[in-house]
Each structure stands twice: as C-alpha cells, then as structure tokens.
C-alpha cells in the first residue's frame, strides 16, 4: 500500500479527481493548502509599500492505493495536472503500513 500526496494547481482539481476515480481510486482527501516551492515567497510593491507574499495557494490531494495502481496513478496525475508552466506542483509517494476501516475493523487492502 502506498499513499500519494499530490500538490497541484487549484483549477486542475476536477481533472485529477475525475481521472483518479476512473482509474479506480476508492476515495481521496482534498485540502486547500498554502506553501512555497523553489520560487520561495516574493515581494509585491504597491505605491511604494512592500507586501511580502510568502505562500501560494494550492490543492493537496491525498490518496491511498494498492502498489499496483501507483505507477498508473502517478502518470495520470502528471498528465492531468501539467500545464507546462511554473508551479505545476509535485507528487510524493509514501509507504503505508496499514489501514483500518473504523466501522468494520477491516484492515489492509480491504480497508482502502
């Protein structure tokens, strides 16, 4: 089992979500997040006053899936979330030790 964490541009959420469901992801978690990447923050100047802009608004998608699905999912997110412009985001892949469905107590694959 792996967890994919993808940071993407907000307007790409629908595309990625639809793609992942079509691929067979059973569920996903979406969060509105703020942060920075290689660009860091930047300064905006308005009428001589400086405004520090530290973070950019992005969407974080988290989805847990079986190992076999991971490479397809990564390819899909990459394809759907790509604009070719700066700030397209990143995908992180993390190992997941176990999963438990709270209602039934099922574990592992069955709980995804």
């Amino acid at each position: 089992m792996k967890k994919l964490e993808a940071i993407i541009k907000p307007f790409k959420l629908d595309d990625v979500k639809e793609g992942l469901s079509a691929l067979g992801a059973k569920g996903l978690t979406v969060t509105e997040v703020k942060g920075f990447g290689r660009q860091r923050g930047h300064r905006e100047v308005y009428r001589g006053a400086e405004y520090q802009v530290d973070f950019v608004s992005k969407i974080k998608i988290e989805v847990v899936m079986e190992d076999e699905l991971v490479s397809d999912a990564v390819r899909l997110i990459q394809e759907k979330a790509k604009t070719g412009q700066i700030g397209d985001g990143k995908i992180f892949i993390l190992p997941v030790e176990n999963a438990i469905r709270i209602r039934t107590g099922e574990t592992g694959k069955d709980a995804i």
Binding site: P10, E32, V33, K34, V53, F55, V56, S57
Partner: peptide, 9 residues
C-alpha cells in the same frame, strides 16, 4: 485566506 491569496495574486 486561501481564496484571498489567489485573488491577490
């Protein structure tokens, strides 16, 4: 804040 950030950008 999240929306505000985008609109400001």
């Amino acid at each position: 804040d999240w929306v505000a950030n985008l609109v400001q950008e």
